[in-house]
Write a protein that binds this DNA or RNA. Sequence first.
RNA 1: GGGCGAUUGGCUCAGAUGGUUAGAGCGCCGCCUUCACACGGCGGAGGUCGGGGGUUCGAGUCCCUCAUCGCCCACCA
Length: 859
Amino acid sequence: MAQVPDKPSLDGLEDKWSKVWEAEGTYRFDRTATRERVYSIDTPPPTVSGSLHVGHVFSYTHTDTVARFQRMRGKAVFYPMGWDDNGLPTERRVQNYYGVRCDPSLPYDPDFRPPEEPPKQALAVSRRNFVELCDGLVKQDEEKFEELWRHLGLSVDWGMTYTTIGRESQRISQRAFLRMLARGEAYQAEAPTLWDVDFRTAVAQAELEDRETAGAFHAIRFRKADADGDRPDDYVVIETTRPELIPACVALVAHPDDERYQPLFDSQVTTPLFGERVPVLAHALADPEKGSGIAMICTFGDLTDVTWWRELRLPARPVVGWDGRLRGDPPVAHWSERAIAAYGELSGKTVKQARERIVELLREHGDLLADPKPVTHAVKFYEKGDRPLEIVTTRQWYIRNGGRDVALAHALLERGRQLHWYPSYMRARYESWVEGLNGDWLVSRQRFFGVPFPVWYALDDDGEPDYDHPLVPSEDALPVDPSSDVPDGYTADQRGRPGGFVADPDVMDTWATSSLTPQIACCWEDDADLFSRTYPMDLRPQAHEIIRTWLFSTVVRANAEFGDLPWRDVAISGWVLDPDRKKMSKSKGNVVTPMGLLEQYGSDAVRYWAASGRPGTDTAFDEGQMKVGRRLAIKILNASKFALGAIGDGAPGGPDAVTEPLDRALLAVLADLVDEATAAFESYDYARALERSERFFWGFCDDYVELVKQRAYGVAGEDAAASARATLRLALDTLLGLFAPHLPFVTEEVWSWYREGSVHRSAWPDPAPLRAAAGTDVLVDTYPVAAGVLGAVRKAKSEARRSMRADVDRVVVYDTADRLTALAAALDDLREAGRVAVVETVVADTPAVEVELAEPDAA
RNA sequence: GGGCGAUUGGCUCAGAUGGUUAGAGCGCCGCCUUCACACGGCGGAGGUCGGGGGUUCGAGUCCCUCAUCGCCCACCA
């Protein structure tokens, strides 16, 4: 046991205790615990290709308070940390950091070293070299992240970290994929796909966002095919924001009930400039209110085009290539020379350039009927992208997620209802997402730093891959990299040869791996013993904006593999907002670094701010709250120091020593507080638990400690002193326990002054002994009434501008008979604390306190 | 367009299942160098709870409606 310091301080507690916790294995998971004793947490693996900001500190603190609570409740807490280093964000960071780009056609260079300074022109490196650079950089990042988390005091078992690009994750990710493939839940299809032209990869519905973008309506005339003159009546006018797609036009479409266009249905028109004959068709999705009420269908301008194209069984005339430029060859072979020349004006241009050029051409030909009408409209973007998405037909892998299967969608909605949501209203986001799915989950990405699809294709005699019968490895061979590993029955030299094989070139989307974090953390199939003790997990903590991605996809995977939920509870945390109510921005987050805050205010203080944010609620970034937290932590040091000084070195009395009515009343109130804090934590309301504990604690310091101070020193005799000391000891133990999940450093520091072991391994406060000490006949009001009178005495002294030590001649308390009876037992304490000579009580309907101060000393 | 959430003193927030004069903290003002705490303590001023209507003996707390803000979702040519 350590000494109580003369001058307790918060400085250095983080270093001191994080070292001790590491050395003692305080947070190590007990692998012998059976499932019902385990509390397992599916911690979000932070993206390491960036920096941790205060938003991370905020939400990870929430989870940590819950972990600490459950640990004190006697659970073996399974709380591993993962690092999400897989995927595009890491690729982008590596490209910028080293000034390189990946060129998969290059051979591996084992001696490659990145340049000291990033070159102006990005250096092309092989895929394997690129992946090695990624691996190296993420390791550096992960070390920094771990340091911050330790400083913050996350009670993670640091012996159990995983990374989403690690071997284990790749194995589990590939295994889960192969099983879905075998069950028909994963499939590939060649279909129109949302495509980012800068990243040159397909993207999934979950990664889309709409952005208001400036555009313009162009009124364009299409000549009726059977027109014999050049009268206005010979034309149909459409309005479009994408005139550059006219060469990709395959039909016009109007609503079946639209009388303006009914006569035209099934007739033909010709496209301007290109003279292609296309039909006029009817479809209910066409909106008579929009534009001129008739639209051109192109392959493909937007998702509605895809629907029309599919349902009306139209031909495809794609013009936009993978690079976002118009393709070199015209989409139709039989075009006239004039049409081919017109297309030649567009080919090779970006979509934007082509649009400008075709508008000029249309104007020259008189097919543009008016100046373009500027509009602002919502356009789909990849959430990490800079240019609007195009729709390109490609072969991709999909996982069934209910987007094309009503029965599966219902099953997943049902899973959502089985899950316990905290706060409960967050479930609405899950449901609206599932109900709005418009296709299966596209999981393949044409990128490099990710988990490869464990698949090869046999090449026929012409060297064409047989996509319908993919070659797969056995599970015990996983993980595989098909670009270097060879499928069973083939030799390496058959790669790419007719009659040989070829690797699937794609990697899985990040979410395809992170949707398996419960399986990865719990070591599915790789450690059956651990898995049986930890899975399905107890808690998924996460932010609300990734309900549609991370949460939903995790449910999809667990439902497919195990027919069950991956966890019982989900706790949704809010965002950190700037003081001006905007989501905390990256730039802002870099100005205010988490480590700077932790050093300035102390980790407990920053945790206090975080833990004050109620579950699911966006919270303003507020250094003022950190100051308050720091003050609370210091108060805990000092109040504990006093309490321990008053208790003295002798063995503390147990509950039996508590005899004084005021002491018994305090413990009764404290027992209620324990119940309230426990209930709050059980429903993940760490903020409520903190707020109630804090409120009690300040009253405890201001009122109770002041009331019993003199008695504890012995002015009222040994028994009365022993009662106060035993109560102080019980209250101190209890309060440290209640605060331990929120303020782990200061509570551990105080605990070490007078107890063995860690407060974080001690039992969560139990109200039963407190109630036993209070007794069944306790007058609970004794404490609040006495505290109220003491407050009135203080107020009188303060208003008289006198010292709190000033003497008081007489106090008269007016109150109800019951409350005065409760107060009676604490009158001696009240006189000592307030330096009051005489206290009188008068039964009255209206409570009041009269205070007569003594004359100040003439001196 | 649909849905969810929020709207309480200058600021940031509490106010379970409706019930005495609506609570904190910050900031502000004043006082107190008190033997746990000057990285302090004590006290004060300051809101009638976004607007309107309703239910009720009684509403910040339930219902309706409007407004503003934020977020989620949606096949916006």
